[in-house]
Nucleic acid binder design. Structure first.
Length: 271
DNA sequence: AAGTGGACCTGCTAGC
DNA sequence: TGCTAGCAGGTCCACT
């Protein structure tokens, strides 16, 4: 589910309200991807600081460390002052005086992990190796071109890797490549500098538009207020195999790369 | 170093 | 109507 826009929309929807709140209880459901890494009791009485995002991870700082959270494929966070009784897919509650932050995640690929600091322990390990932020000034066509020079994998696969630029998952990688007019099967090291400039711009534009739309809701994504996203309605290739390309009218195709579905227009996306 | 495939887990849908 | 195969927004890890 959640790619960078969904994670950022989620962050914006509860960060201000939870900041400064004291943790009064922690409730764990079924195991998530990794163990919490601390006794829940150790978190109680700590205060929540400003929530930040790195790639698709959220960092929730506490007085003596913090929690690194990931929504996996099917996770979402809610923040409510009077939460319902936990359901079968509610696997983490951070109860505070201001409300309860709850991770709901049917597939349990998500995670909540304690670390003494964002650059220490488990957090450091998980965040190491992430690429640049797409909205950072360091993310340029030149950066992309330099990184892609040593890669022979298809550009779609390279974008999804997250070690060059973070944030574009399967939907937005497909959409950005469409935006840039690049065939997703193009070998990374064959992309010219000019096309890398176009791609960097397309990634920013695509993620930016999704952010403005509140993210994409394919199945169950909601922000912490329970609001669904709307970007999926403006997706131009993702999930549209067999339909006409909105730009050139050719039939959109579906293929598989690295065990993930890829959607593209054979008419206006070139190698 | 870079690339590949498998692993994690559950729910929904299309098709028989 | 009921069962089953296939698919889903991520990413870590082991292995070549």
């Amino acid at each position: 589910m959640p790619e960078l826009p969904e994670v950022e929309v989620t962050r914006l929807s509860f960060a201000e309200r939870i900041q400064g709140a004291e943790v009064t209880a922690v409730r764990l459901g079924k195991p998530l991807r990794w163990p919490l890494g601390v006794e829940p009791q150790q978190i109680v009485t700590q205060r929540v600081g400003p929530v930040t995002r790195r790639g698709k991870y959220l960092w929730l700082p506490l007085d003596r460390g913090g929690l690194l959270m990931h929504l996996g494929m099917s996770g979402s966070l809610s923040f409510a002052s009077a939460p319902a009784a936990p359901g079968p897919h509610d696997h983490f509650d951070l109860v505070t005086a201001r409300g309860t932050l709850r991770l709901t995640d049917p597939r349990r690929f998500g995670a909540v992990v304690w670390a003494p600091a964002i650059d220490a322990g488990a957090a450091a390990k998980l965040l190491a190796g992430l690429g640049v932020e797409p909205f950072d000034s360091a993310f340029t066509g030149a950066h992309l071109h330099k990184a892609l020079r040593r890669r022979r994998v298809a550009i779609k696969t390279a974008l999804l890797g997250g070690d060059i630029v973070v944030g574009a998952g399967n939907i937005y990688a497909c959409e950005a490549l469409f935006e840039a007019g690049i065939d997703p099967r193009t070998r990374s090291d064959r992309l010219s500098r000019v096309r890398c400039e176009a791609l960097a711009e397309a990634v920013r534009k695509t993620l930016g538009r999704a952010l403005e739309s509140g993210g994409s809701t394919l199945r169950n994504f909601r922000d912490a207020h329970g609001i669904a996203g709307a970007f999926q309605l403006q997706a131009r290739v993702y999930g549209r195999a067999g339909q006409a390309c909105p730009r050139c009218g050719a039939t959109i195709r579906r293929t598989v790369q690295g065990q993930r579905a890829t959607f593209f227009c054979p008419g206006c996306q070139r190698r």
